[in-house]
């Protein structure tokens, strides 16, 4: 689906979302209230210039008292890989964007990430994975690193990696694998009303970070919830 099709299905009562390069900003009417919309689209990399505009919009929403949810549409590449971005401190810009989303959530705005295309590595962490709830549309294709690059780094032939990827979800790219490790809460049905599915998410109160629990239930991340719990218990013992 394109961003325009997604927004039409999500917000039949209308919206004023506009594009600014590969970024989206705006608001939509939803039920009796509104939903704030930000987006990183066009499968574009996220560098310092994109991150700072996204964080500006999120912080402005966070400072409002409307308690309206934020929907973050994501179809990006990885973080922008360049000498300039690293020279100027890309890690700070991406962390700042993530912190802005987490602050908005703490101030009463639900943050819903909607992954409808690609996203990878640091860009994925600073956008979709910094939202309180992350959902995806079929066809989304998140990855930490593509298998060809992974083959270079791990010095394993790509056919060996492809064979291993069939037996474990823990390292290979793809939506099913990210669902299995608990990173994505739900994959929506593109054939029915997205508005209804968003309403379902908003009607379900969020109870803490449940991604490790989901990963254990789904089998992709068997140890994380247990280990984190054991450390937290020992520290408070």
């Amino acid at each position: 689906m394109t961003p325009a099709e997604i927004l039409d299905s999500l917000f039949p009562a209308g919206h004023d979302v506009t594009t600014d390069g590969d970024l989206l900003f705006g608001r939509a009417r939803f039920g009796d209230g509104i939903v704030h919309v930000v987006g990183a689209t066009g499968r574009a990399p996220i560098g310092i210039d994109q991150a700072i505009r996204l964080s500006a919009a999120v912080l402005q929403i966070a400072s409002s008292d409307d308690a309206a949810p934020i929907l973050f549409l994501v179809d990006s590449a990885s973080q922008r890989m360049s000498r300039r971005d690293e020279l100027l401190g890309l890690s700070e810009y991406l962390a700042h964007l993530a912190k802005s989303l987490l602050l908005a959530e703490a101030r009463g705005h639900r943050t819903i990430g909607l992954l409808y295309g690609g996203s990878a590595a640091g860009a994925f962490i600073a956008t979709a994975l910094a939202c309180g709830t992350l959902v995806a549309l079929p066809g989304a294709h998140p990855e930490v690193m593509d298998l060809a690059s992974m083959a270079r780094v791990t010095k394993l032939p790509i056919d060996v990696l492809e064979a291993k990827a069939k037996t474990t979800p823990v390292f290979a790219p793809g939506l099913d694998n990210l669902v299995s490790v608990g990173g994505i809460a739900t994959v929506w049905d593109a054939g029915t009303s997205l508005a209804d599915q968003l309403q379902t998410v908003l009607a379900t109160p969020r109870a803490g970070d449940d991604r490790a629990t989901l990963g254990a239930e789904r089998g992709g991340r068997p140890a994380a919830a247990r280990i984190a719990g054991a450390v937290a218990t020992a520290a408070q013992g």
């Binding site: 962390a95 993530a98 912190k99 987490l102 602050l103 703490a106 590595a121 994925f124 962490i125 994975l129 910094a130 930490v144 690193m145 992974m150 780094v153 791990t154 979800p169 823990v170 390292f171 290979a172 694998n177 990210l178 299995s180 490790v181 608990g182 990173g183 970070d209 991604r211 490790a212 990963g215 992709g220 991340r221 994380a224 984190a228």
Partner: peptide, 20 residues
């Protein structure tokens, strides 16, 4: 990279835990 998906989500969980 050998457990890239688990590591990626772990980093998101750590950042959230720091902010909270």
């Amino acid at each position: 990279l050998q457990e890239a998906n688990a590591g990626e989500i772990a980093i998101a969980e750590i950042m959230r835990a720091i902010v909270e």
